[in-house]
Amino acid sequence: MEHDQGAHLVRMVNQIATNLSHERDAATRVRVHLEKFWARSMKQRLIACLDDPGHKLTPLAHEAVKHLAGREAEKSHASSSAHQ
């Protein structure tokens, strides 16, 4: 089931990437879309897929998810340092 859920999210983000591929700054658009509309748990699961060398992310989706991962890491770093 775990794997299925990841594959499902990858399919969803690929679909988003395909539909936004003709926009300017497509990777940013995809990343912003995920930030605006996806739940925290879904984003985390999606980011975890980056560790799977067999993931089926399209190049654009991959770029967007990498951006997302960076931003999320920054956010959690900022909030953990705020707590210290």
Binding site: K36, F37, W38, A39, R40, S41, M42
Partner: peptide, 8 residues
């Protein structure tokens, strides 16, 4: 952060 949608 946004929450889950029905299918999610």
């Amino acid at each position: 952060e946004p929450g889950l949608r029905i299918p999610n």
